[in-house]
Design a protein around this nucleic acid. Structure first.
Length: 839
RNA sequence: GCGGGCGUGGCGAAAUCGGCAUACGCGGCAGGUUUAGGUCCUGUUGGUGGAGACACUGUGGGGGUUCGAGUCCCCCCGCCCGCACCA
């Protein structure tokens, strides 16, 4: 980008003091300072071990390069920039990097439409976004920029895949998977939202396919337990969502003999105490077990039912008030504790993928089982007396605590005791055992699309799966595919690229084929924050020493849409790297902030609704600082911002007031603030004290409100107080510039410059309040009679309680309010409040 | 259905501990500057009553604890989010 006429005009015209009434245009100073900052590079992190400064790592979720930056980016990066800039001001060695999550479907779809290669669209958009980032001016270290679609990056994604493979954490298996018919690829469970594709919204189908998985379930317990480290520093709702997603249930496995089958069938139950109340047995209709054990005379009916179940759409499956359906399999299971014969049914209300795909049904104490029992007229037996009415009559299962009945050795026990006892009994007899089950499934990572990281595995007819040797990484994508070559066909487009896919087997040298799937882009983004610590490192995915110094991330800022996707996967990756001895911590992100959304008139902005507010237009109209300030001032960072409610004009007015004050200061640069007006100095120092606390507590909207109050105080000091030559006015103006540098960097820099200080203001140093100026010499004490404010007293802050009580009772207003009635009690909380309770 | 969160002026929102409810900003009203409009500056602005000092009232509704409740406890109403047959 070249310096243009506009730049020279702006910098030339802004020199000298600004006369009252001159209006300040935040846009006019942007190009000048952007160029200056590019020279100064104030935000470069220092890797060297002898830098004594404390280190901080501020991370924003990196961008997907779809078009230009939008309003959502503007909010997220304005918010994430505040703690980073605060740390720079505090003199820390800050790592605040940026990069692009640049593999993914939109690039591929664009390439198909334009008959081009996805790289063209991707890297063009990255450059557009990079230029917008530079203008928007977050405090980024540009020397660490990375793109996940660069071979230098995805070489290490492949390297990590192979390490996972060696450890048994990456494996291939066949089974039912989620299939998006629109994107023509499989999806992870985490990418199916309410039965729809998380990305395109299409209704997801079930297919039976062989796919690659990461064994995240092996880490289920640790993913759950380590959340203790995050409590208080991550939003509660994210922790809750992850807990629910992992879905740990404790209970027991119980083995049931099925008549005519050699191997017993195991079921999982959270209520082994109700074992004597089991009256039937249900197998998932789509589980292989159902087909296997179905008796010949029931075969036709079962097949018809299974056919019906397989045709059900996700919508049917998800509808809340569903009638229970099922079919008797003509077989019986034996209850291991009382020998009772229970009919075995197949139904779709039992899930093949959870537990063992089969359950013991206890209709009296489980609502789903009761619904099924009532639909098919199966017996209901109460074994826990909860004091509630009979479920067989009410249709309401009693799931609560109570005394066990009709349960042999368990009779009379409470629920918890009964659970412990029955597990002992089952373990003694070898018929069952305590067990834990998770809702979490392994992470399906293979995708049948082109623009992703190739899976570094070669399939050899004689050797089977053969990893690509490390020294042959990266397996790069072919660059000769265009347009229709990339169209979704239900298998990866790479499979059709004959000269790419056909390779000799690394093991036996025979003819073999590359795995033609690519990895889920969430694999790329599960480790990028490690790479930032040593982005040009060539001997591994990251330099272990640098990661040890920079990580874990102190502050991570991004959208709540990644509450279980990216954040769960990243936590998983970190634990694997810990087990590999590559990192010395188990959680990657110490503190997490989820910013809200930018909406319009109460609705999410979307192209289909046609209610998009364009960030470029907003910046062109109001300037970067106005947009950033509006994003931060409108409310708490985690709340949504309705752009219809914000007033860019008010932000511009405020910035103009700041700029005008800076231009009016006449006290020299070296004036001693100690000789200045004490009243203004008190306000300045108290503001610093408060803003410091507010920024550290992430209450940026209130912090800005306090700066506004300081600006008003400085304005009054100039107009009707000590005047612009007072050193306290300079102190206030300089303080305003530094505080404002966290929120509106251009105006802060311009003001700093008007005050005769050298750029950059960003590292000028955070002011330290003088404790002597924070001590009030008078405080207002509120005097209440019967809880109502009747008088206010100006008193010294250290006043004694009995002295304050005497003063309060001496007040005419208090005496008037008492009106001669006696006093029952006086509560004194010196020096703030006195409450007099009349008799 | 289960789990979680939130209800404060006309609007966005403040109120670390239970201690002056409504900071800051928008919008409104009044005045000043200006040829005028806009900009800019000043004052004012929860509601009801009052000319006014002031009085009463007020944080979704009801009850409780407390000298004192937006804040803590119980019940109800409304809105939002997550999960959704997970045995």
């Amino acid at each position: 980008m070249s310096t243009d006429e506009h730049t020279r005009d702006a910098s030339g015209g802004a020199a000298g003091a600004v006369a009252p009434g001159d209006s300040y245009d935040p846009r006019a100073v942007q190009d000048k300072w952007q160029a200056r900052w590019a020279e100064l590079e104030p935000f470069r992190a220092n890797d060297s071990a002898d830098d004594p400064r404390e280190r901080r790592y501020a991370l924003d979720m990196f961008a997907y390069p779809s078009g230009d930056l939008h309003m959502g980016h503007a909010e997220a990066y304005a918010i994430g920039d505040v703690p980073a800039r605060y740390w720079f001001q505090r003199g820390h060695n800050v790592l605040h990097p940026i990069g692009w999550d640049s593999f993914g479907l939109p690039a591929e779809n664009a390439a198909i439409r334009r008959n081009s290669h996805p790289a063209e669209w991707t890297y063009t958009n990255i450059e557009t976004q990079a230029a917008s980032f530079r203008r928007y001016a977050p405090s980024l270290d540009w020397s660490r920029r990375l793109h996940t679609s660069d071979p230098e990056y995805y070489k290490w994604t492949q390297w990590l895949f192979l390490r996972f493979y060696e450890r048994g954490l990456a494996y291939r298996k066949g089974g039912q998977v989620n299939w998006c018919p629109n994107d023509q690829t499989v999806l992870a469970n985490e990418q199916v939202v309410g039965g729809h594709c998380e990305r395109c919204g299409a209704l997801v189908e079930r297919r039976v396919l062989t796919q690659w998985y990461f064994r995240i379930t092996r880490y289920a317990d640790r993913l759950l337990d380590d959340m203790k480290q995050l409590e208080g520093n991550w939003p509660d709702r994210v922790l809750l969502m992850q807990r629910n997603w992992i879905g740990r249930s404790t209970g027991a496995d119980v083995d049931f003999v099925i008549e005519g089958r050699d191997e017993p069938v195991t079921v999982f139950t959270t209520r082994p105490d109700t074992l004597y109340g089991a009256t039937f047995f249900v197998v998932a209709a789509d589980a292989p077990l159902a087909a296997e054990i179905c008796a010949p005379e029931q075969r036709a009916e079962f097949e018809a039912y299974r056919e019906q179940v397989s045709r059900e759409s996700e919508i049917d499956r998800l509808s809340t008030e569903r009638e229970k359906t099922g079919v008797f399999l003509g077989r019986y299971a034996i209850n291991p504790v009382n020998g009772e014969r229970m009919p075995v049914w197949a139904s779709d209300y039992v899930l093949a993928e959870y537990g063992h795909g089969a359950i013991m049904a206890v209709p009296a104490h489980d609502q789903r089982d009761l619904d099924f029992a009532r639909a098919f007229d199966l017996p209901v037996r109460v074994v826990v007396d909860t004091g509630e009415p009979d479920p067989a009559e009410t249709g309401v299962a009693t799931a609560g605590d109570g005394r066990l009945v009709n349960s042999g050795p368990l009779d009379g026990l409470a629920k918890a005791e009964a659970i412990a006892r029955i597990i002992e009994i089952l373990e003694d007899k070898g018929l069952g055992r305590a067990s834990v089950n998770f809702r979490l499934r392994d992470w399906l990572v293979s995708r049948q699309r082109f623009w992703g990281c190739p899976i570094p595995i070669i399939h050899c007819p004689s050797c089977g799966e053969v990893p690509v040797p490390d020294d042959q990484l990266p397996v790069t994508l072919p660059d000769n595919l265009r347009g229709a070559d990339l169209a979704p066909k239900g298998t990866s487009p790479l499979a059709a690229a004959e000269d790419w896919v056909n390779v000799p087997c690394p093991s036996c040298g025979g003819a073999a084929r590359r795995d033609s799937d690519t990895m889920d882009t969430f694999v790329d983004s599960s480790w990028y924050y490690f790479r930032y610590c040593s982005p040009h490192y060539e001997d591994g995915p990251f330099d272990v020493e640098q990661v040890r110094k920079w990580m874990p991330v102190d502050q991570y800022t991004g959208g709540v849409e990644h509450a279980i996707l990216h954040l769960l996967y990243s936590r998983f990756f970190t634990k694997v790297l810990y087990d590999m001895g590559m990192v010395d911590f188990t959680e990657p992100f110490t503190r997490l902030l989820n910013q809200g959304q930018v909406i319009l008139n109460g609705k999410a902005m979307s192209k289909s609704l046609g209610n998009m507010v364009d960030l470029g237009d907003q910046i062109a109209e109001h300037g970067v600082d106005v947009v950033r300030l509006a994003m931060l001032f409108s409310g708490p960072p985690e709340d949504d911002i309705d752009w219809a409610d914000v007033s860019p004009h008010a932000m511009a007015k405020f910035l103009g007031r700041v700029h005008r004050i800076a231009g009016e200061v006449t006290a020299p640069v070296d004036a001693d603030p100690a000789t200045g007006d004490v009243a203004l100095r008190r306000i300045t120092h108290r503001t610093v004290e408060e803003v410091t606390g507010l920024v550290e507590a992430y209450r940026f909207n209130v912090a800005i409100a306090r700066v506004m109050e300081l600006v008003s105080a400085a304005r009054r000091a100039i107009d009707s107080g000590p005047g612009p030559a007072d050193p306290a006015v300079r102190e206030a103006a300089e303080t305003i510039a530094i505080l404002l540098s966290l929120f509106a960097p251009y105006t802060a820099e311009e003001s700093w410059s008007l005050l005769g200080r050298p750029a950059p203001v960003a590292t000028a140093g955070w002011p330290v309040p003088d404790p002597a100026l924070l001590v009030e010499d008078q405080v207002t004490c509120v005097v209440q009679v019967a809880g109502k404010v009747r008088d206010r007293l100006e008193v010294p802050p250290g006043i004694a309680a009995d002295e304050l009580e005497r003063l309060a009772l001496a007040s005419d207003k208090v005496q008037a309010a008492l009106g001669g009635t006696g006093i029952r009690k006086v509560i004194v909380r010196a020096p703030k409040i006195v409450n007099i309770v009349p008799a």
